[in-house]
């Protein structure tokens, strides 16, 4: 039952997605690529790319896209696929509702409590690890090619990776502009 699976997967993502968009990526990938095979690694990277270029949080964007793609790949009609999309989006925000309203009621009692602070101080470095894992998991032949398969594409990919990394970190180029440059490079070099 694809709708129930979508609901459970995205409810889990919403419930355990600590640390914002990028930290959620490894979670989303774990569910939709590794566990359920709803989309491939390169499709997943494309969703991240689209999310970067369109407004909206990555958690919502991926839920909307994957919900549609999963139901559509399972052979459902367009209307039913839109329902899958809505189902996944609803599931990813539901934990926020439950937790937020619960926390509003008890927050002022436990804010700055030493145990809560200790938990946060270990969760924050962990979140950095989650983001690193998301990046490592995407360094696949599908996204970068390999020296044997296509040396041309492999070295260009490494180059574009380094240029983007340094361009956004050292030269502070706007990420969206950087994506446009790389898309243009791809058009010139591959087409």
């Amino acid at each position: 039952m694809i709708y129930l699976q979508l609901f459970i997967a995205f409810f889990k993502i919403g419930l355990f997605g600590f640390g914002g968009g990028y930290a959620m990526l490894s979670l989303i990938q774990g569910e939709v690529v590794t566990a359920h095979h709803w989309i491939s690694t390169s499709q997943f990277t494309d969703i991240v790319a689209i999310s970067q270029m369109t407004p909206g949080p990555i958690g919502i964007n991926s839920a909307t896209y994957v919900g549609y793609a999963a139901a559509s790949n399972a052979g459902f009609s367009n209307g039913m696929a839109i329902l899958g999309s809505a189902m996944a989006t609803f599931a990813v925000v539901l934990p926020s509702f439950l937790l937020m309203i619960f926390v509003i009621k008890i927050f002022h009692k436990y804010h700055n409590h030493p145990v809560v602070n200790t938990m946060l101080s270990v969760l924050r470095p962990t979140v950095v690890g989650l983001i690193a894992a998301a990046a490592l998991l995407l360094m696949t032949p599908e996204n970068f090619s390999t020296p044997n398969e296509s040396a041309w594409q492999f070295y260009i990919s490494i180059f574009l990776f380094l240029v983007t990394f340094l361009g956004t970190q050292v030269m502070h180029i706007n990420p969206i502009r950087m994506i446009c440059y790389c898309g243009f490079a791809g058009l010139l070099l591959y087409y």
Partner: peptide, 30 residues
Amino acid sequence: IIAAIFKGIRPAIVALIAAPCINLARAAHI
């Protein structure tokens, strides 16, 4: 054409995900 554009974009996206690790490592007091 779209396929060629996305071939160029994918490595950039991986770099954009890797990059914040450095800033966040500082903010997380690693």
